[in-house]
Structure formats: C-alpha cells, structure tokens
Design a binder for these strands. Structure first.
Length: 667
RNA sequence: GCCUCCAUAGCUCAGUCGGUAGAGCGUUUCACUCGUAAUGAAAAGGUCAUCAGUUCGAUUCUGAUUGGAGGCUCCA
C-alpha cells in the first residue's frame, strides 16, 4: 500500500501519494510551469515532501516570467554553442523584461548572427527538449565543465555566490550544485548542459515563438572593469506572441518619445559638434520651455523663503581642496587651467601661477557666502538658491542626451540651519519638493535612502548615524515608500532621493535632499546662538530638477513632446479657413497675446488641412479655427491635440478658457 | 575609460565594385486657396564629419581625430 502524505496546495490541505511531483499535481493547468515549495521555487518534476506548502506558479506571474526568460537564455546559449563551438559560457540570468547570456568568443556577434540564432532557437524550441535537473558533486561539476573556464571560476566562488557579482547567484547557489541537461525528447540524448541553479520550465515547447534577440554588446566578466570583456546577447521572452508584440510596442513608444529625437523634431535643443560632447544649446522654443520651468521654480522658491544668490563658474583650486572635491572627485572634474605663471628667460619659474577649475558643484561657493560675515541664530534657516551652472568631466561613454551632460544648470539650494531645526527643515523641504514636482506633472513617487559607502566617506560614524536616522524618520513620515540604497551616499553625507515614474512607468531619479555635516566642518562656519556661544550649523543640499537640462529631457519624454499649455512653446495657433479670415484670426490672437498667451496665426500659403497637420505635428495645445460661420457669430472653433473639437465658442469665452488653462497649469 | 557599430543636403535615408552624388520631407519662389493630418510646379541647398596616407585620381580603401548609437563600468 502506498503511503499518503499531506500537502498544502495553493492554500488548501490535500492528501496525495508519497512521491507525487508538482507536474502530477498541476498536470491539468498548462499555465503552471514551476512551483514554490515552502517559499522556494522548484522544478515541477521534483517529488514533494510531506507537510510542505506548495504553490503553483503560472508562466505569466513575475516568478513564472523569470523562469521562462532564464530557460530561454539556456536555449540561446545552446544555439550559440552550436553556431560557434568555441564559445565559452559566461552567465545567463533573467533581467527585467528579458534575459542575457555572456559568451567569450573570438569574433563579436553581428546582427545577422542574431537572426541566425533566433532561427536555431526556434528549432530547439520545436524539438521540445526537456530541462532535466541533476545534482552533482563539486568534482562531477568540474569534470562536466572542464571546457568551460568561466563556469570553473563560478564553482570556485560558489560558497559565497551571492556576493560574487551580478547574476552569479543564478548560476550557482550556496548548497547543492546542480547541472541542467537539455534532453532530446525522442532519443533521450543529452544535447547540451549548463551549470545552473534553476529552476527551469519543464520543456522548451513552453517558450513557443514569443521570444526575440534584441541586441549584442560587450560586458565585463563579473561586472568588473578589471576583467575581460565578454560578448553579451540580450533577448526578451513572453508567454504569448501577443505579449511579445505588446512589449515591442512599448519599446517602440519609448523610442518615439526619446527626448533626443523630439528635441530635434520640435526644434528645442541641439548638441553642436563644435562645442563638444555633452554640451547642449537651447533653441528659442526649448528656451521658452526652460524659461517657463525656471520662472515657476523661482516664484515658488521666493514664496518658500529662499534667498537668491549668484556665483561664478570657475574658481581657484584651493576651494576644492578645502571642500574635499579634489580628493574625492578629481577624475570627474575638468582638468585645471594653469594661469598667471611667469617664467624667466632661462625657463625657470619666476612666479608659480595657479590652477583654476570649472566648478563641479555649487556648495563651496554658497558656503563662502554664508561665511562672508558673522551669522546669528536669528538668520537660520538660511536658504541660498541658485540656478548654478556646473561642469563635470563625464567619461566619454556615459554622456547621453540631456540626461547625462558635461555642462548643466542645477536648481541648487543649500540650507544652513541648527541641529534642532534640521528635522523640521528636512520635512518641509521634502514636502516642498514633492509639491513642486507634482506641479510639473509628475505624481507617482517613491523615496530612496542612500546610506554610507564604507569605502568612501568622511566624518564620524556617530554623525552619519544621526543624520541617517533623521532622514529615515523624515522619509517614513512622508507616507511614501522608502527603499534602502546601501552605500549610495555621497562622501559627505546621506541622502534621500525622490524617484518619479513617468507616463510610461519608467523610473527617474529626480530630486535629492542630502545632509552634510562635513562641509560646515571643513569651512569652519559658525553662527552665534541665543546664549552667545558659537555653534556650527548643519547644511542641507537639495536640488529639485537635479539639472534643468535633465529635467527637461524627462518632461519631454513624460509628455511625449506634448507639453501642457503653460510649458508649450506655442500655446495657440490660429488657422483661418481661408485667407479672407486672416484679419479676424489676428484679432483673436491679439486678444490672447494681450493676456500673455503665446499665440500665432498660420498665414503660410499652405492649404487649410495642411495647416491643421502642421499644428498637430508641432503638438500645439490649442488650435483655433475661424471661417465664415465663426466670424458671423463672433466665435472660434477649438481643435485639441487629441483631435476633438469644440465649435462656435464665443471669442471672449475662448480666450478666458485658454488663459485659465495656462494659469492653472492644466494638463 | 572599455567593447561593437555608425557618420552622404536642415531632417530621414539611397548610392558610388575608386572617376567629386540622388529621393522624400523641410526651405524659397510662383500659381491655387472657404471647415479639421500632406494643392501643384519650379528653384536653391552637399569640400560626402575632420586630418593624414595609398593612388594618375579618394566621398568610396587604410590610419588617426572628432561626434553619435547600443552595452559595460561610472554617475558628488
């Protein structure tokens, strides 16, 4: 008689025969591709033990997708080794929306290779190979992987795989060493195998035809610059062809929204080669958007009690010796210009001269303003704000559109306050920042708390602890999700950053609020307390846009170039139905201009439908149309960006509506 | 910084197996204009990124430089 065991299956107790596998348990649900046993993902074909809690995992669940993508990565690696028998395997984990696999190959992969590989993968999928798990000893694993040097390195590291580097723990985990064999269904032959922690899909058929290889690129082995670069192939995989298509459409939409593309199409900004990498110029239309952003920011900062200051773009090097930047970030600064040196005729130095640097940060200069005279506790908190232009020597490979530049303008403020004021000041700053971001149209946030990097910090542990705790309390009080970012802090203090999600659900790090106990020390700034003693203020760094340039890039993508009326370069275009109504249209536009609205009349020689098309392509928020019917009624007709209309609106009403939309910053 | 790829008109791209180039859009001009995403015609516009090398001759081949793309590493 067969022994019966008790399992908790998807929440309910069941009695089953001992030795029952997940595959038998869930055989009638083809969506189930893997299972979770006592919280751990397992292959379906593993027998279940009495008393365990078993949950089915569907292919379209987050874990199921990860397994699907990991298995697809195996299929790809099998195809790669068939195409390039000399290819050595690196690691091949799942990632967001897909997977990659690294290979050491003599020649990089070409786009044609990717197409060939996709076809080979489809053949493997159609063969319906089984993924078979095999527990091995370390010796067996080393024998099986004798020709895979990188796998042998992984075995060396298996004891502490979780710390070894990106993706390593997908291959080998602490505990058992396992190999996954790809077994051909008909012959039972093992066609391919890989050292892998699993779990995997039961078979390749489940991958169906909903996968694609997307790109190839180089990547450092184990993610370290010191290691050899391997060739990485990225791919994506989905439960259904429709899901794959939806993903590809999302990628295409992101490409259409790319601010570099829209910036050129809408004539907002450009990156002249003559200026150098990462140095943008803003064209008149981009300038209007930027000015509107800055004007509103100034207005709000004035209301919130900030003082406006201005500082130069260049300074003697000594300032950044005092601040510590030359110690910590010299590589990220433009090299110095050496000036004022004088030489004797024989080439010996008569006057040594000195180094000037472009400024990479505003804080030291603001601190000099603080220090320019004695300060009283009555002045604190002192909030110094500047649209401060900074220059950073970003490595050539990382410069990217407006989001990573070498010259940028920060909406930078430094708040000097007492330790007692610190918490309230942080709280009100965070609220100020969140409120302002919402006004610009971003409203889906979470916070990140970046804490000390043990290899890169100054100041005492005690101070770090206090400031970290304070930031954490403030973050938690905000009610937003607060995620830890260990080691992410700047050398001088911990920070809270606001992460905003855009219209496509992508996350951007926006504002940062940083505590700094270090700069006040280094610059020895003080204030006189009510009791007459000299005390050291605390300094808070905060930027809301981060950089104006980057924020504009993010907003461009968030709005897909269709900026809300208050930011739009051209807010209204008047289109007369025929030339005879030009004057009528001009009268309407003049009324709008009198109210400060950016309005134009399209009097080009284009025909009416072409003018509509032009205005649509320029993403103008309000198109006003006037012809005979409207003119007789003293009205205009609206055409909105979505193509909808509102005809016969009295002119004064139309003007009021537009003015109101701009005033309220309506979307 | 590293790897791979790329650079032809303002934009998107074709082309030249080495003999100085073409389309569409845009621009200009002319004609035509009456209701919601492209009226027609003509013209202008290019040291084929820059600098060297090979060659009778280089936009084309080679190298370097600059700039760009996608990754990796980095991001105060």
């Amino acid at each position: 008689m067969l022994e019966q065991i008790t399992l908790t299956i998807d929440g309910a107790q069941h009695e089953v025969t001992a030795g029952t596998t997940g595959a038998e348990l869930f055989f009638d649900d083809r969506q189930v591709v893997v299972m979770r046993v006592d919280g751990v993902l397992r292959d379906l074909d593993r027998p279940l033990e009495s008393g365990t809690v078993v949950e089915s995992v569907a292919i379209d669940s987050p874990d199921g997708l990860n397994v699907l993508r990991h298995s697809t990565a195996h299929v790809m690696a099998q195809a790669v080794q068939a195409l390039r028998p000399d290819a050595k395997l690196g690691i091949g984990p799942y990632i967001t929306d897909g997977f990659y696999f690294d290979f050491d190959v003599a020649e990089p992969f070409t786009p044609e290779d990717l197409k060939t590989l996709e076809k080979m993968m489809q053949k493997i999928v159609n063969q319906n190979q089984r993924f078979v798990r095999r527990v091995v000893t370390e010796h067996e694993a080393r024998t099986a992987m004798a020709h895979e040097p990188y796998k042998l390195i992984l075995l060396d590291k298996s004891a502490n795989a979780d710390e070894a580097g990106e993706g390593v723990n997908v291959e080998v985990g602490a505990g058992e060493i396992t190999i996954y064999d790809n077994v051909e269904r008909k012959s039972g032959d093992t066609i391919w195998c890989d050292l892998c922690r699993g779990p995997h899909l039961p078979n390749t058929k489940l991958i169906s035809n909903a996968f694609a290889l997307t790109r190839s690129a180089a990547a450092y082995w184990l993610g370290s610059e010191k290691n050899k670069q391997l060739q990485r192939i990225y791919g994506t995989a989905w439960p259904t062809k429709d899901a794959l298509k939806a993903y590809q459409e999302r990628v295409a939409e992101a490409e259409r929204r790319d601010h570099r593309k829209l910036g050129a199409e809408l004539d907002l900004f450009s990156f002249p080669d003559e200026l150098g990498s990462g140095l943008p110029v803003f064209h008149p239309k981009g300038g209007i958007i930027r000015k509107a952003m800055e004007d509103y920011s100034r207005q709000r900062h004035t209301e919130a009690g900030y003082d406006f200051v201005y500082t130069p773009h260049i300074t003697k090097g000594h300032l950044y010796e005092v601040s510590g930047h030359l110690d910590w970030y010299r590589d990220g600064m433009f090299p110095p210009m050496h000036v004022d040196a004088e030489l004797n005729e024989d080439g010996t130095v008569r006057k040594p001269g000195q180094d000037y640097y472009l400024k990479p940060m505003n804080c030291p200069m603001h601190t000099l303003i603080y220090r320019s005279r004695g300060r009283s506790y009555r002045e604190l908190p002192l909030r110094l704000f500047e649209f401060g232009s900074v220059y950073r020597y970003e490595k050539s490979g990382v410069v990217h559109g407006l989001t990573r530049v070498r010259g940028m303008t920060q909406d930078d403020a430094h708040i000097y306050c007492t330790r007692e004021q610190m918490k309230d000041e942080l709280t009100s700053t965070l609220n100020f920042v969140l409120g302002l971001l919402k006004d610009y149209g971003l409203d889906d946030f979470y916070l990140e708390l970046s804490t000390k990097d043990p290899e890169k910090y100054v100041g005492s542990d005690e101070v770090w602890e206090e400031s970290t705790r304070t930031l954490e309390e403030v973050g938690q009080a905000s009610g937003l999700e607060l995620l830890p970012d260990p080691g992410g802090a700047a050398f001088y203090g911990p920070k809270i950053s606001v992460q905003a999600k855009d219209a496509l659900g992508r996350t951007w790090q926006m504002s940062t609020i940083q505590l700094d106990f270090n700069t006040p020390e280094r610059f020895e700034i003080e204030y006189q307390g009510a009791d007459g003693t000299r005390r050291r203020p605390v300094m808070i760094h905060r930027a809301l846009f981060g950089s104006v340039e980057r924020f504009m890039g993010v907003l461009t993508e968030h709005y897909a170039g269709a900026f809300p009326a208050w930011l739009a370069p051209v807010q209204v275009v008047g289109i007369p139905v025929a030339e005879a109504f030009n004057d009528y249209m001009f009268d309407v536009v003049d009324k709008l201009k009198a109210q400060g609205i950016r309005a134009e009349v399209d009097i080009s020689s284009d025909r009416f439908p072409k003018k509509i098309r032009t205005a649509s392509k320029e993403k103008v928020p309000f198109v006003l149309i006037a012809g005979g019917e409207d003119a007789e009624a003293g009205a205009v007709s609206f055409r909105f960006r979505d193509g909808s209309q509102d005809n016969g609106v009295p002119v004064d009403t139309a003007v009021a509506r537009i003015v109101e939309a701009v005033r309220t910053r309506a979307r």
